[in-house]
Computed example of a mutant assay.
Amino acid sequence: MTAPYPPHGRTPAGPPKWGITLPLPGLTIDRHRFLVERLPDLGYTDVWSAEGGGTDAFTPLAATAAWSPGLRIATGIVPVHTRGPAVLAQTAATLAQLAPGRVLLGIGASVPAHVTDINGIPFDEPFKRTRDVLRFVTRALRGEHVAGDFDTFSITGYRLPHPPAEPVKVILGALRPGMLRLGFTEGDGAITNLLFPKDLPTVLGAVGPQPPGKELVVKVFVCPTEDTDHAHRASRPFLAWILNREPYRKFHEWLGNGELLAETHERWAAGDHEGAQKALPDEAVDGLFISGSPEECRERILQYHLPGVTTIQLYVSLPPEVFVSRSRLLDTLARLGPAAG
């Protein structure tokens, strides 16, 4: 069932868009065409990609635009430090030629591990850099000539030779109030992730009134299996790692989850990474990386559909037995997603 109406003066939620993050773990992008072609039949409206230490964000979206031309394509997210502002604008404009009116460019600060540790780029002034890139990209995508000094970079002068004929939405990966408000005041919305359903009213309260057309995307992590041991083995190392990145540690402290995660933070800070994994409470593992039968997972996913949430973006970690056939993989995603309702 849809989650209860929250006290933020919002109108009742309409049907959200449903997206899936590609590539699926364990399946290289060249093996996704059959899946992408069938996603609309399963009720999915979007394909999302992300960029950290694995697949780049844009190649899966270009392939999706060719394989299933009705889907929205979106990045969630691209780090603002690892590409120049003009390159980001060019890439989004090029994608818009393949999917006019169906492109969302999600950008954000990311974490030092994805910026400095593997790219050798300083993780300097993440909020200001995100704000400056947002301002540059939104102007460039409107076809404006952009020149001058921003706080974190200077532009001699740039204009897109072929700005998108239909708008590209630019949204921010946002966790705490400053970035959330920036996404809604100067961008087209925000993406939040790795939070409990009970935390969403706090995020919605920080966002405030949402003008029509703005996006609030909630990324939900799912492992559709009734083998709890497998689900924990698949999710616990990732959760221990990400929740001990400074932006996520501060995010959960703001949400009021600091005490729940205190021991894993203490052990990680002491250099005991294995101990930090073990100290992560099952309550956190099960709440932040949903597992169970596809039907059970779907019921819990729907808890994130509060008024104000426009899109549910799934990150799906499938158990090995689902990969035995294409039909089983498609059946699992069908039972997990919007068409099952």
Results as ranks from 00 to 15, higher is better:
Ala3Phe: 05
Gly9Trp: 06
Pro15Thr: 14
Pro16Met: 02
Gly19Glu: 05
Gly19Met: 07
Ile20Asn: 04
Thr21Trp: 10
Leu24Phe: 08
Pro25Leu: 10
Gly26Gln: 03
Asp30Glu: 15
Arg31Gly: 13
Arg31Phe: 14
Arg31Asp: 15
Arg33Ile: 10
Phe34Thr: 09
Glu37Asn: 08
Arg38Asp: 15
Gly43Lys: 02
Thr45Ser: 13
Asp46Trp: 14
Gly52His: 11
Gly53Lys: 13
Ala57Tyr: 08
Phe58Cys: 00
Leu61Val: 08
Ala62Ile: 07
Thr64Arg: 08
Ser68Asp: 05
Gly70Thr: 11
Thr75Ala: 08
Gly76Phe: 04
Pro85Glu: 04
Val87Gln: 13
Thr91Leu: 13
Ala92Phe: 12
Ala93Lys: 08
Thr94Gln: 13
Thr94Val: 14
Ala99Tyr: 04
Ala99Asp: 09
Ala99His: 06
Pro100Phe: 05
Gly101Val: 07
Arg102Glu: 10
Leu104Val: 15
Ala113Glu: 11
His114Ile: 01
Asp117Glu: 13
Gly120Trp: 09
Pro122Ile: 03
Phe123Arg: 02
Arg131Leu: 06
Leu134His: 06
Phe136Arg: 00
Thr138Ser: 11
Arg139Glu: 12
Arg139Asn: 05
Arg142Tyr: 00
Glu144Ile: 01
Val146Thr: 00
Ala147Gln: 10
Phe150Arg: 00
Ser154Arg: 08
Ser154Asn: 01
Ser154Cys: 00
Arg159Ala: 11
Arg159Gly: 01
Leu160Pro: 04
Pro163Glu: 00
Ala165Tyr: 00
Ala165Trp: 00
Glu166Thr: 13
Lys169Asp: 04
Lys169Ile: 02
Val170Lys: 05
Val170Ile: 07
Gly173Arg: 01
Leu180Glu: 00
Gly183Met: 01
Glu186Val: 10
Glu186Cys: 06
Asn193Val: 01
Leu195Met: 14
Pro197Glu: 04
Gly205Tyr: 04
Val207Ile: 15
Val207Asp: 06
Pro209Met: 02
Glu215Thr: 15
Val220Arg: 02
Pro224Gln: 09
Glu226Cys: 13
Thr228Arg: 15
Ala231His: 11
Ala231Tyr: 13
Ala231Trp: 12
Arg233Gly: 10
Ala234Leu: 14
Arg236Trp: 11
Leu243Ser: 07
Leu243Arg: 14
Glu246Ser: 11
Pro247Phe: 13
Lys250Val: 08
Glu253Val: 14
Gly256Ser: 05
Gly256Tyr: 01
Glu259Thr: 12
Ala262Tyr: 06
Glu266Phe: 01
Ala269Ile: 00
Lys278Thr: 12
Glu283Arg: 15
Glu283Met: 12
Val285Pro: 11
Asp286Phe: 11
Gly287Ala: 12
Leu288Met: 07
Ile290Thr: 05
Arg298Thr: 03
Leu302Gly: 09
Tyr304Gly: 02
His305Glu: 15
His305Met: 09
Pro307Arg: 12
Pro307Tyr: 09
Ile312Ala: 10
Leu314Pro: 03
Val316Gly: 09
Val316Ala: 10
Pro320Ser: 03
Pro320Asn: 07
Pro320Gln: 03
Phe323Lys: 01
Arg328Pro: 03
Leu330Cys: 04
Ala334Met: 07
Ala340Glu: 05
